[in-house]
Design a protein around this nucleic acid. Structure first.
Lengths: 203, 203
DNA sequence: GCTTGACTCATACGGTCGTATGATCATATT
DNA sequence: AATATGATCATACGACCGTATGAGTCAAGC
């Protein structure tokens, strides 16, 4: 029991530090010290730093993919299901504030993306392109590569949450006020909805 | 002359390595070795690693801000000027492939963003919100916070270029083919244009 | 021809890093 | 009671880090 509690504390502190300082910046020494564990605990419980990292990523991303897939398979027409997906995305990013910092570090070119990230994004992309193709068949979604439309849609929640930390410094904390954050979600939904809808014919 | 050539080689190799491996991952030893310079050269020419880093960032971002501001001040109605800005953005990101990796590393939460990044993005944001406010006054751009609309617009080129390295692995290099890349630019322009335009009245 | 200044060089310093090693402890099983 | 097992511990190892130091090089100016 104590063993699993040490394991859990290591996971929690590792996640906090990886998100804050990146893979290189979060040293095994700091992680174990903050978790109140011995230096060797990471090697013992996870086999090494990288394996711990992958476990942290999987724990952070798997629930997101799960919820997105469920929202994409929910009731309603394709456009409103995509709106539901975006709300799920924003909600998840809001309740897991450290997630942007976590995945941001993994996207650096030169390194290959960790398997948990690959898996989660693969599931999400597949679910969304499916919904978009369905919408294109019934004419409620504009024509074009479903993959591109999916990415344009995902760009909204991802970019906003990635930019949040940087932007709150550029805008004097504006985006941190809760009512502004809610307004931002509605804005992103509207922008994406217009972007996905077929353009009205110009006379 | 040889001195300035060493300086230039240091800048070039530092940029390559910072983009690829991040600030921590790019060691002064590797930078100087690849530049064919002595270990002490960074300290001598730039005063330290961080100053070299800032100089690299400034050299990479200042021209982008310059071109964006110029495109935003060009001729034409607001919507087409914003389209021009997006084209400039895509073109710049295409000719400076290492730029996403470079700025991505600076966005990590916990660290404050480097002054050159702050300055460039500040200029870009100011120019774009100005154009959007102008479009809102003449009714060609949907209402809402200009800042949010600016971010939604910027999300397209930035997210696509950030995601390019990761996505080319998820999509088997699809996005690397030049005609697909060109199609992607047109897609992003269309998506953003629809997102910025006022929604047609629903009867 | 000598000096001055900008530059390059080899080397040293104190730190931090991830991991390996073997001892020690607590607890459950025989 | 003795032992086996899983967990924790202090410590050591080799590697790499950014920077400082001082000696060496070499062309330009007097």
């Amino acid at each position: 029991m104590t063993s699993s509690s040490t394991r859990a504390r290591l996971l929690a502190e590792a996640r906090r530090l990886f998100a804050q300082a990146g893979y290189d910046g979060a040293s095994v020494r700091r992680i174990t010290a903050r978790a109140g564990a011995n230096l060797g605990a990471v090697t013992y419980h996870f086999g090494g730093k990288q394996r711990l990292y992958h476990e942290v990523l999987a724990a952070a991303l798997a629930p997101l993919a799960e919820r997105v897939v469920r929202a994409a398979a929910g009731p309603g027409d394709p456009l409103s299901r995509l709106g539901a997906v975006m709300r799920v995305y924003f909600a998840y990013l809001d309740e897991q504030r450290d997630l942007p910092g976590l995945i941001l570090q993994t996207l650096a070119p030169g390194r290959s993306l960790p398997p948990p990230v690959r898996a989660a994004f693969g599931r999400i992309l597949a679910a969304l392109t499916g919904v978009i193709e369905e919408g294109q068949r019934v004419g409620s979604i504009v024509n074009g590569r479903p993959l591109f439309l999916t990415l344009s849609l995902l760009a909204q929640p991802i970019y906003f949450s990635l930019a949040r930390s940087g932007l709150s410094k550029l805008t004097d904390g504006l985006t941190d006020r809760p009512e502004v954050a809610a307004e931002l979600v509605e804005h992103a939904l509207g922008f994406a909805r217009r972007g996905l809808s077929p353009a009205p014919e110009v006379p």
